[in-house]
Design a protein around this nucleic acid. Structure first.
Lengths: 361, 361
DNA sequence: AGCGGCGATGAAATCGTTTCAAACTATCGC
DNA sequence: GCGATAGTTTGAAACGATTTCATCGCCGCT
């Protein structure tokens, strides 16, 4: 409507307000930050002038003087990962009421960028950090984490450093899933997941192996592919596995991006999920819950994870920096869909547990 | 490894560096910001001290003094929407090499929060804004946008205000999709999309209507459901439409969240996509490309959109504030999947264009 | 009347950097 | 040898708020 360019009038400063109100700058400052200490009459007068002139304190000056920014840094390798963006959203919702706002850095998982992000943020730009550092092993990153000048919370990563963390019990979740598959008769179970250089990869692999051990069944080590959390990796490994001479009868996609690749590989080979190959995935994404079936998945409360990270951080910022680092571990839940059935060989002899539509492989 | 708490030593200031190097603070500052103006011998000496003491300028003080923050604000209603997070990522990738970092605010689309976000960011916290303001109509938000003190770029929103914008030609994309469906024989085509209070909703509806008009075919107004961009809305409307006495033979899911709801409704009623009902969706998400079929969709280059927004902003920040606002419009592409076929009635009489597996409704 | 105490206010210090005019130094031409 | 000049460096003044400290009135109490 207004086609006239509102001239970006120079911001009004506290000094101008003080002059206009006929008081000192100190009084204006107190009127804003400690209203109880200024006489009601004066307070009202100052407030009127503030409102009239549309004064708002300059955050830069406040940051400078208060040595605080009311900003929290969020470091993540890929914000387009639905799990990560959900954590971010939940953390923001928790922090906003406390006046905090978030600085988001998308690192792509590269060690240098992660180290650089920690560096640039923690040096006066934020009051706290929530992060998923992919370079658990990188000495640079570890040094940065060890020397952190602001409180920090680590998400789903295990770094030998004194810092709060919010973890997921991926191992137990994986063990349950594998146990479920073993119970259905599967022995040739494949696991495609993150590299063992990061906690989720290590934990999932551990849970996978443990499930077999507890049953006293030899673990199909040749079917464990723990390298990357990407769709491309998922597709490549799933394709190779499915084409091999002794293919798995069940696949566990250990990561929501991996699932995308695994599904593509399965489609490419025209294989029927649940009948020819059972499928379990991790994390409740739109794809996992909406894909026909739907898919059996290892769920976790991602929003609670984001909320908890924010809570831990808020407590630290509020001053409990002396207390020992805390570590909150969230459980997982196996949610049964219809993507698993008995392995084909078994199904052919014994009665099938659910309707199938047998096709040629 | 280091179990000793690295004491968060007080940050070293430029004054301390100056003293240690035996020069004035001004010289240290110039050594950093204008090395050419300081004598090589002095420069080296200062640099050595800086390195030894590990000095890094305090960003807060720099922001304060320079009146600039090297930060860009990104305001979005929902960062978990894959389109939005992709735009963010692309924009960040473009801005990072220029030294900018991003402040992300997730508003949930509420007008007050959007207005508050603009307010809090543009007053000294950021040097520019990239935003998708949902409250196109809200006077508060419009006023904020009109009085912006920093350069801004609007994403996919039409606000009568002098500001750069990056748009998508949703109307043409929709027209092509509808035309394609009409060509397949469909007449009862449903559109479920955003409300007409925001540009994508208006444009998609316009394109939908135009497609019929150009063919001289009456537009099925009763099948247009333009209200919200949510899975819940998509599911509710799709369910109602599919259960109605004269159901649509084709559905267009005008939004990636809407698609989730539409697919659920279709699954719930056991309807076969492509045979009993044709489906077109918007945006290339993992779900759309991985869902069996895959789905026919109206694609757009979301990364280019994010990149372009960043470029426009960078140019403004670099000083071209006088130039008239620019408006970049990105085209869409119809990508054919296998989710569309001739309408059931036609298919039953004429020969089907692709294999079907007829089921009871 | 004098004194203590208290609440409200103003003046000044402070945060750490950049910037700018002025001072200083060395070099050069004449 | 002297002034001009260019090149460096210095010292101090911003930047815009918060915060500390001293002061001033005022009230009540003895």
């Amino acid at each position: 409507m207004t086609s006239t360019f509102e001239k970006p009038e120079k911001a009004v400063t506290i000094r101008e307000v003080a002059e206009a109100a006929g008081v000192s700058v100190g009084t204006v400052s107190r009127a804003l930050n400690a209203p109880a200490t200024v006489r009601p009459a004066t307070l009202e007068k100052v407030r009127a002038v503030i409102a009239r002139m549309g004064f708002q304190p300059d955050p830069r000056a406040q940051n400078m003087r208060r040595r605080t920014t009311m900003t929290v840094g969020f470091i993540i390798n890929d914000i387009t990962n639905p799990m990560h963006s959900t954590v971010f959203k939940a953390a923001e919702a928790e922090l906003r009421p406390h006046g905090f706002t978030l600085h988001l850095v998308n690192t792509g998982g590269e060690p240098e960028r992660e180290a650089a992000a920690i560096d640039m943020l923690q040096r006066g730009r934020v009051d706290g950090l929530i992060m998923t550092i992919n370079s658990e092993q990188d000495p640079e990153c570890r040094a940065r984490l060890a020397g952190l000048r602001v409180p920090g919370v680590l998400l789903d990563r295990e770094v030998p450093v004194h810092i709060d963390s919010v973890m997921t019990d991926h191992a137990t979740g994986m063990r349950q899933a594998v146990d479920y598959l073993i119970g259905l008769g599967h022995r040739r179970i494949a696991l495609i997941t993150a590299g063992t250089d990061i906690s989720p990869g290590r934990e999932r692999k551990r849970g996978f192996i443990e499930a077999f051990e507890r049953r006293g069944i030899p673990c199909p080590d040749d079917l464990i592919r723990a390298k990357h959390l990407s769709a491309a990796f998922g597709q490549r490994e799933a394709s190779m596995l499915l084409r091999s001479v002794d293919p798995p009868t069940a696949i566990i996609a250990g990561g929501n991006q991996i699932l995308v690749g695994v599904l593509r590989a399965i489609q490419q080979q025209g294989i029927e999920i649940g009948d020819e190959v059972s499928l379990v995935t991790c994390d409740r994404t739109d794809l996992a819950t909406t894909y026909p079936g739907p898919l059996t998945l290892i769920d976790r409360d991602v929003e609670a994870i984001g909320r908890t990270a924010a809570e831990l951080l808020l407590e630290r910022i509020a001053g409990k920096s002396a207390e020992p680092p805390r570590r909150v571990v969230f459980p997982t839940t196996l949610i049964l869909g219809h993507s698993c059935g008995p392995p084909p060989a078994l199904a052919r002899s014994a009665g099938p547990s659910r309707e199938r539509d047998v096709r040629l492989g």
